[in-house]
Design a protein around this nucleic acid. Structure first.
Lengths: 203, 203
DNA sequence: AGGCGATGTGAACACTGTCAAGACTCGGGC
DNA sequence: GCCCGAGTCTTGACAGTGTTCACATCGCCT
């Protein structure tokens, strides 16, 4: 009824969005395993079962979170790659390094999000089994390699290099956030990767 | 009391071991998130709270499982590497390939176990932040690189190559079991890795 | 024999995901 | 105006979880 009525509004404009956002934030801070549907619902100010009118499962909500996570990763890598201007040898090499560092940096800054994004609930959602090409960060990495290839700087045949590079960066990030690898190994990793991938300068 | 009494024996000889083994098996088949302390205890034929006299937490039990998983991974990689005899160029290259393939094969054969072994509950258990050197599979991979280095076949300075190679193999395995990468990409990956790491044969 | 410590049990707590039944609110047709 | 149905949200319940508590039981040592 009647005027103002700011408190307890009505049907809560856009619950689905609110739930997604809140879940995202909780996964980001507390980690995927530690967030409960009930807690998310309560934070939004709504009953737990209300969520079931917008998501079939808790898993569906979590997949939405994972999707947002991958978007953020894509954004970061693309930003880092675009920040390096120029078309020369130096620029192309640096671009690859920056792109990889951004990928690893994301995992470092948001380990919970990173884990969840590539966790079994989210990653396996695409039934195609070849989600690689859907990933923008993968494509960004690929474009960095293209640049190097165009300059004839690659140490090996272009094909298959995307996968290897991505694997190395992703694996390193994974091992890093689990504490298996010391954090100060990131620069050396990218340096080694460069030295292996791009042809030596003077010769 | 009295004779025979095979059923409901006594204190159950070695519960800790039984629980670990059962938990390991359940994680292996059902996946880490799907196994409950109670189910493990019941399968062993014991009350749930009995487990708390042998493990402080459910997490502690799960860490034990993770440890067993890493032992199995170590065993497989070592076995694969040792199966390749010879000290020549061919052998050294093939040894590296076999070692990596075994690593990836483990992830493929036992995805649940692999995930759990490198999951946050298990991997981060060592507070040193540099558990890499403790991992036998890491060292096995390193020895393969040593062999190549001794023959002067490496395409880049030896230092840092362990980390890069391990990262690539581990990352590939991770992406593979989440369905992000098609399974038939394993051979190409190891081929690319080899072609990048070891110097070209004729020149 | 007595008792003590290690090892087991059962009931209880707070919490989880999920679902069925009912209440509220809105928009559109009489 | 009214009413009704669709969409939305709540309450209450169920089975299951990790964990803890008080208590029972067993083997071993003095």
């Amino acid at each position: 009824m009647s005027f103002v009525t700011a408190t307890v509004p009505y049907h809560h404009g856009d619950l689905r969005e609110a739930l997604s956002a809140e879940a995202f934030e909780q996964v980001r801070t507390r980690g995927g395993d530690a967030v409960s549907l009930r807690a998310v619902a309560q934070a939004v100010g709504v009953s737990a079962s209300a969520a079931y009118h917008h998501f079939p499962d808790k898993t569906a909500l979590m997949q939405e979170v994972g999707h947002r996570g991958s978007l953020e990763l894509d954004r970061r890598t693309l930003l880092a790659a675009d920040a390096v201007r120029g078309r020369g040898r130096r620029a192309a090499t640096e671009r690859l390094r920056a792109c990889g560092a951004a990928y690893i940096g994301f995992a470092q800054d948001e380990p919970h999000l990173f884990r969840h994004t590539f966790g079994p609930d989210c990653a396996g959602s695409a039934p195609t089994g070849d989600k690689a090409k859907d990933s923008a960060s993968y494509r960004t990495l690929g474009r960095c390699l293209d640049d190097l290839d165009r300059l004839g700087l690659l140490n090996a045949p272009r094909a298959g290099l995307d996968l290897m590079t991505w694997s190395a960066v992703h694996g390193f990030a994974s091992l890093l956030i689990e504490g298996i690898i010391p954090v100060d190994a990131t620069e050396p990793l990218m340096a080694t990767l460069s030295s292996v991938l791009v042809r030596s300068p003077t010769r």
